[in-house]
Every structure is written in structure tokens, then in C-alpha cells.
Amino acid sequence: MLEILQNNWLLFLVGQYPHGPIGGLVMTLFMAALSLALCFPFAIGLALARLSPYRWLRLPATAIVHTVRGLPLIMFIFWTYFFSPLIIGRAVGGVETLVIALVVYEAAYLSEIIRAGIEGLPRGQTEAATSLGLRYWPTTIKVVLPQALHNMLPSMVSQFVSTIKETSLGYVISAHELTFAAAQVNNVLLTQPFEVYGILALTYFALCFALTSLARLIERRISAGRGGAPGIVVAA
């Protein structure tokens, strides 16, 4: 296993770069970060639309979220793969395809997290802001969203972990990322699939577990900042 790692660590890390396109772990992280960043505004828009008092905003947003939740990510990837060339008018690479599909997919899931974050705020916050005379947008941007997003920080990190895991589907459309790199290594070696995919699994595990632990740490900090969880009251 160590030998495989010694001979191929560069391929796992950056793909075929500099002799070919950049890939591997670096590309995995890049795609995950990029799609999460790009989907963020859409997610906030969807969340606000779902909480809107207007039906014409609420219904389409709800429909979008449910449709995304009902379809496998791979379906989005294929839709994007086959149809963005028709729309854009040129061939679209694997990385772009994956990022577009992930933005749509993650926006729906992230919007649910944001919505829960907003709904989790005490009603008094909006009431206090509106009684100060603030209108909808100032209330939302200055009072509601900052608090909701702060409380949601752990969920955002978890969402980043999900996105990292989902970029592995890039393999299916030959986007050059970590899983694709491992498959290439496996195709060269042929005889040690367990070791190659074991290394791949452990790499993802180390990365995602570290981030998951970070999310837990932040969650404890945040709940401690709120005065902590209610302690156990000893009965008289």
C-alpha cells in the first residue's frame, strides 16, 4: 500500500498536471469550494422565497426544492452533460458540467438549511427590527441573515463535506478529480484494486472526518456562546 502511495502520490494529489489537466485532490477541493460558493446566493434566494408570504414566490421555490430532493445527483449531471452544449453552443468539459450540476443540487439542500436557520431564530428578532421601523430587506440583511448564518456555520461545514463526497461522481463523466485519479492508478496497476481504493477511501476519510470534527467543534462553540445547553437540574 505504501509503495503504491510512494509511486502515485502526485497523481492522487494533482492528477496528470503538469503533463495534462490538473486533477486529483486539488481539483476535488477546488470544485467543492467553487460549487458551494456559487450556490450560496441561489440558496439564500430559494430560502427567502420559501418563507415568503407570496404564493407566486413560495410555490415555484418549493417545487424546485422538492424536485431536486427527488432526483439522484447523477440525473442532474447527465442533464447538464447533454444539454449545456445545446444551450452554450460548445462542448462543455467534465469539470464545468460537474460544477453546474452541483450548484443546482446543493442550492436546494443548502436552502433548506438556511430556511431552518431562519425559522429557528426567535420571532422576537424580526418583531423587534420591524418595530424599530426597519423594512423587509434591512431586517433580513442586517438582523435575520447574519444571525441565521452564524448559527448555521456547522451545517455549512457539513454541507462542504457532502459536496466533497459528491464530486466523486465526476468519475462518471471523466472529470479529473480524486476518484478519477484513483481509477487511473488502478488501471495501470491492475492487480491491487483493494489497496488503491483503500487509499482513496482513507484519503476522503481523513479529509472529511477532519472537517466533520471541525463542524462539531464550531457547534459546541456556538451553543456555548448562547449560554450553553441547559444543565441537568438536580431534583430536590
Binding site: S168, F194, G198, A201, F205
Partner: peptide, 19 residues
């Protein structure tokens, strides 16, 4: 933790190609 922090596709590969 293993099953939640490793992509499902990779878990499938470990079972299909590896095991």
C-alpha cells in the same frame, strides 16, 4: 464515521473492485 465520511461511490468501488 467511515460510512459517513467516504463518498458512497468510493465505498461501492471498494466492494466491487477491492473485496
Amino acid at each position: 464515521e467511515y460510512h459517513r465520511n467516504v463518498p458512497l461511490l468510493v465505498q461501492i468501488f471498494v466492494w466491487y473492485f477491492g473485496v
